[in-house]
Design a protein around this nucleic acid. Structure first.
Lengths: 252, 252
DNA sequence: CGCGACCTTGAGTAGGCTCAATGCCGGTGG
DNA sequence: CCACCGGCATTGAGCCTACTCAAGGTCGCG
């Protein structure tokens, strides 16, 4: 049986973290970098499909995604699943668990991933000693709240086609931000239509038909677990409201 | 013309804030209280229906709800509205605006309200000087993210009846937490069925019919802009998943 | 070669939507 | 004092979006 979760000792020192080179992340001063480096206790490697958090469990850890993708979701008792959002490199995970008693959502790897591990006590020390970094943590929390707001607007008030258009644009933008787009509009993420459906509050069948319609319109291309934006303007028009929220952000 | 927004100089000193007596709020030590008191720059009085924030505007202020209710919402260009959540006494508003460039959502008073005003720079001083309070701010952000998660699950995956049941329970619980329930289950909040509809991603007509069904089941009572929980168990059963998240929380 | 994961398509159903009209109530102006 | 109006709840009718059930296709893998 293949291991799905593997713990690795400290690997990349934060100072050399490849993510920091991206201009989307604000530069840290050496002192901050040193602290974050001490804050980090190791790395985990996750196989695609493996759980990182499970709803109801308590987690002593915080993570920053180094590479790979994941999604956050909740289940209803009868198995209906709602995907809340997607986690990309640079995202900081597990704050809810560190701050509340137990996890109120689950997280599952979408692709193989590597994550930095921090622990709760470290978070407390961070607040005690580094106002700037504390502010960063809060900033990140506010940002993810914003993304949830958008998602809620979509699911609550947009039609199926609008939702699809909006989600695909949003995903494409986020992927591009962290340098994962192979070209300007070609996105390769290991996502199935079932994921899309569970993200948008639609059924699988209807999602398939809606994507099919978008394909016939020439707006996108879909080929086994990967999609491509062909006509960004058309999608943006459909989506209605194209908030481009890509602001420079901290990376813990 | 009646004023809809009125600025008032400092009124209640935080040490005497009536909200602090509620056991749902964690006790602050005198030093913290003193700081928060300095952080506070005044109060606003809002008439029901008046806006507190408008999407796209920048706001220099943060607020804590002292009394009254509000709701946070987003609009689509064509006017469709999604209510994101409700704001109750003790809630801390405007963090997004303080932390990002501009507001990505609007807030409107549901009833007459009084709010404490803080300003951005104060927030920064808070982070610099009070690790505990900074942590509290983050805690509150994580909590509201959690509530959004729940709401998203509801809108994405629950049926109309389930959504209504869940929302009414949720509102009743929150109102009771801050001591606003007139009795164990009688909730009096100035909410219309249009608000419910916009919260749940349903049409007004369908919301009305669904509530009507709940009324005929004897689960709730609805009388002009106020409702009452008659059969909590039945509602909880319908809602499926009754997370009672009422944890002791900070009050800024 | 069979199986599992995923995408696709058809057919019938139903949950939820729109349009439209009615009733109630409180406020306002003549 | 009454007529009118606007905001809110309610109900009927018909439609359509999105759902369910079901089957079939492709591809990769053991």
């Amino acid at each position: 049986m293949a291991k799905t979760k593997e713990l690795v000792g400290r690997q990349v020192p934060c100072q050399l973290c490849p993510l920091r080179k991206l201009k989307i992340f604000r530069p840290f001063n050496p002192e901050e970098l040193a602290f974050v480096s001490r804050f980090k206790t190791g790395e985990v490697v996750l196989k695609a499909g493996a759980p990182l958090f499970l709803e109801g469990a308590t987690s002593a850890h915080l993570y920053t995604v180094l590479s790979g993708l994941a999604f956050r979701y909740k289940l209803l008792p009868d198995g209906r699943r709602q995907i809340l959002n997607y986690c990309m490199p640079g995202d900081f995970l597990g704050l809810q668990g560190s701050v509340m008693h137990e996890m109120q959502h689950s997280v599952e790897a979408l692709s193989d991933m590597v994550l930095c591990i921090f622990n709760r006590e470290g978070l407390w020390r961070l607040f005690e000693s580094h106002a700037g970094l504390s502010f960063d943590v809060t900033w990140l929390a506010a940002r993810s709240e914003q993304m949830l707001d958008q998602q809620l607007l979509s699911v609550g008030r947009r039609s199926a086609a609008e939702r699809c258009a909006h989600l695909l644009l949003h995903l494409a933008d986020r992927v591009a931000e962290v340098g994962l787009a192979r070209s300007r509009h070609t996105i390769r993420i290991p996502i199935t239509q079932q994921h899309i459906a569970d993200t948008l509050g639609l059924s699988l069948v209807h999602t398939n038909r809606t994507l099919g319609r978008l394909m016939r319109l020439g707006a996108i291309r879909w080929r086994e677990q990967e999609f491509e934006i062909l006509d960004r303007d058309q999608l943006a028009e459909l989506a209605g409201d194209d908030e481009t929220s890509s602001a420079v952000r901290p990376l813990l």
